[in-house]
Simulated assay, not measured.
Amino acid sequence: MIHEHLTEFHGLPVHDLGGSAPPSAAAWRVEGDDSYDDLPSFEESFAKLLDTVDCGAVRALVVGTWGWAHDDRRADVPVGLLTEAAPRFPALEAIFLGDYVSEESEISWIGQSDVTPLLTAFPRLKRLDVRGGDGLEFPAVEHAALETLRFESGGLPAEVVRAVGASTLPALRHLELWLGSDNYSGDSGPDDWAGILAGRGLPALRHLGLQDSERQDDVAAAIATAPIVARLESLDLSMGTLSDEGAEALLSGQPLTHLKRLNLRHHYISAEMSKRVLDALPDVEIDISDRRNEQNWRFIEVSE
């Protein structure tokens, strides 16, 4: 998922500039890299988007490369251009920010900035996906329309996690956080997850993903008593270091039988405990594939 560019986003096929799709029938990718003389800069590509596509009908944008990912001087360029041009995009519903693949940048190197101006500039935005956590800021916000919020990272800063939990997002149904590794600023813990798990500002939430964590057992233990779980339809604890300890916490905690889906893929749970989980939740669709062999260390799926 981080090794190939998006081909679909927000239910729409992704088209590069110059494509012939109707403006509302595609998610338009805009990218640039002024590190090489023969490639346009991101600013030039964005200007081309404004000049060649009927932006008034565009529903989804995929922001690809905007230069060397770790150049802090460039981190806020796409957010700045998008917010400045917001009146040109009255129909915009979804933004994917940072469609860098591993050949272009490791996920932990992708430099981000404060992304909340996008929510202020686009009050009708339904979906925001952000890849990369280096320099990422997300002060607590209020947004009436946002339905999906996703952060893909090798390490999500604790202050971002806390701010999500302190935000007021009454329409949010899908929340996905790749918590990551402490080596890459993924330093959140139970106190930081508490706001999300209380769910006071997330009354419509139906899917929660707290994934890719080196502390996945601690996440499971927190989930076991979290008020928000009762209203969920699906729960994703995949990609991390979940072991028998975390699985036991899930089974010993509040009932999960109301869930439609439980994703535990990429884990360190024993075969015996895996069977216990499956037997305890026979009517839940469970993905407990990709059991990892623990040797000297447990690894999350996405870090650097």
Rank of each mutant, 00 (worst) to 15 (best):
I2D: 11
L6Y: 09
T7M: 04
T7S: 10
H10G: 02
G11I: 06
V14M: 01
V14P: 02
V14D: 01
S20N: 14
P23S: 12
W28P: 08
D37E: 13
D38N: 14
F46T: 13
F46K: 07
A47C: 02
D51Q: 07
T52W: 02
R73H: 08
D76K: 00
V79R: 00
E84A: 15
E84N: 07
A85Y: 11
F89P: 10
E93C: 06
F96E: 09
L97E: 07
E104M: 06
E104F: 04
A121Q: 03
P123D: 13
R124T: 15
R127C: 12
G133H: 01
G135W: 07
G135M: 09
L136A: 06
P139F: 14
R150S: 14
E152I: 10
V161H: 10
R162P: 02
T168H: 09
P170V: 04
P170S: 11
R173D: 05
E176W: 10
L179V: 03
N183H: 14
S185F: 12
G189H: 08
D192G: 03
A194H: 03
A198H: 11
G199F: 03
L202R: 05
L205V: 06
L205W: 02
L208V: 00
G209F: 00
S213G: 12
R215N: 15
R215F: 15
V219T: 11
T225G: 04
A226W: 02
I228L: 14
A230G: 09
S234D: 08
S234T: 10
L237F: 08
M239Q: 14
T241L: 01
S243D: 05
L250V: 08
H258S: 10
N263V: 13
N263F: 08
L264K: 05
H266R: 02
M273A: 10
S274R: 12
S274V: 01
N296T: 14
W297E: 14
V302F: 15
V302E: 07
